[in-house]
Design a protein around this nucleic acid. Structure first.
Lengths: 230, 230
DNA sequence: TTTTATTTTCATAAGTTATTCACAAGTTAT
DNA sequence: ATAACTTGTGAATAACTTATGAAAATAAAA
């Protein structure tokens, strides 16, 4: 079971978070005190940390720095509204994401899942995904198609990775938006379409002649590729 | 047919919602009064509830709590802008989603569908239906007939799924129309016939030689297939 | 058999959804 | 500071899906 550590001095909020996350099949551990939280990390490491920025004793940044000295756990920073500069600082210090209070539960959930997915795929034993004529090297962030290196942008690479890790499954637009952008979409969003279009282009395919990414009309896309064996 | 319960005291809004959702093939039930809504739940349970937070008599949170005491229906909370300001509102009681007014109808639709998808996939343990020479894979949205992949449109796929889930039962036109289109039956409606025709065609059968979908003259259709066991 | 009712199919139009393009805004590198 | 690169947006276009009405085919009834 996935464990989430919540560090926030706001009792009311932690209670809600606890309840909400438990409902969504996470195991939670709550600390209102930074030092205690830090200590608990020595005993056991959670899968993810929700960390408030504003706390007595030690602020979230300091705590994050301390955590990062020894551990590489994904951290989502929580902060009161308005302070955009916090975001920059937080991300610089190695927070994996950032969420302004008040936030929508749906959004929190989406980001948690998105991060966990990323981490899991990163940590999976396999560094290189091989398909028929396509090699994806996660470490080198390199993609080789038919023997030739393809240069992808970061988001294109992430999209391809997401597809490759979910090959032969239909991924709907909502899933894609949430996992690639970590946000809930507002209006009808074409950014995913464009991303796919560009990715397809670089992989040398057209919607008509599609080798890897198939359109599922009305739903989303599906990555089709037969794993390659040497 | 998917039923959505709307609980909101704002007459104008419920009217719009009613109209919009009906257009999109949902059956709606509107209540302006929390108590009445609560009572109606004893008689029949909808597939999803749209619940306003601000209402006279009993606010949405209380109502949600009451609902959750006995039922596990997905709930989307509606709220006027600003009501939430410093609270992490939806977290409070396990609403499945949360939408701030004013919202785009399109977004509401997306979220409704997203939730329903989630619930449905949870409820149907089986992801793959196997028949003699026909495999239906819900995750891959793929149909394989005699070893060859058949490409179906979304509604064709849904129709096939409906048939497969009700195999060897006679499904009359009214049932089909309601479940596939969610519209009320019109005598001169041939859309189901056309849909079946196309589906048959893609499954490689003719009315004369039917392998799966048999016509029951004067009534409807029947899907005949023996579940396959490995 | 003839008549009537019902189903099937087709072409087409209308409606949706997907793709691409050019451009602008934002980033990063030089 | 400038250039090169990314990425989101809106608009135009393309592709796909689906409803409709009419005609053809089939089944049932007389």
């Amino acid at each position: 079971m996935t464990t989430i550590l919540i560090i926030d001095d706001d009792n009311e909020l932690t209670e809600l978070l606890d309840e909400f996350l438990s409902e969504h099949k996470f195991k939670t551990k709550v600390f209102h005190n930074p030092m205690e939280a830090l200590n608990s990390l020595k005993a056991s490491v959670p899968d993810l940390i929700l960390l408030d920025i504003m706390m007595p004793e030690m602020d979230g940044f300091q705590l994050l720095r301390k955590i990062r000295e020894t551990l590489d756990v994904p951290v989502i920073m929580l902060t009161a509204k308005g302070e955009v500069s916090d975001k920059v600082v937080g991300l610089e210090l190695g927070a994996d994401d950032y969420l302004a209070k008040p936030f929508e539960p749906r959004e929190l959930l989406a980001r948690i899942q998105s991060i966990l997915r990323r981490v899991n795929s990163k940590n999976s034993m396999v560094d290189i995904l091989n398909f028929e004529s396509l090699d994806i090297n996660k470490i080198k962030e390199e993609v080789v198609l038919d023997g030739k290196t393809v240069s992808l942008s970061t988001s294109e690479f992430e999209a391809l990775l997401l597809f490759a890790n979910n090959s032969n499954k239909v991924l709907d637009r909502e899933f894609l938006v949430e996992n690639l952008r970590g946000i809930t979409w507002q209006t009808y969003d074409r950014s995913v379409d464009v991303l796919v279009s560009r990715l397809r282009n670089k992989l040398g395919e057209t919607p008509a002649r599609t080798r890897f990414i198939k359109t599922i009309h009305g739903v989303g896309y599906k990555f089709i590729a037969t794993p390659y064996k040497k």
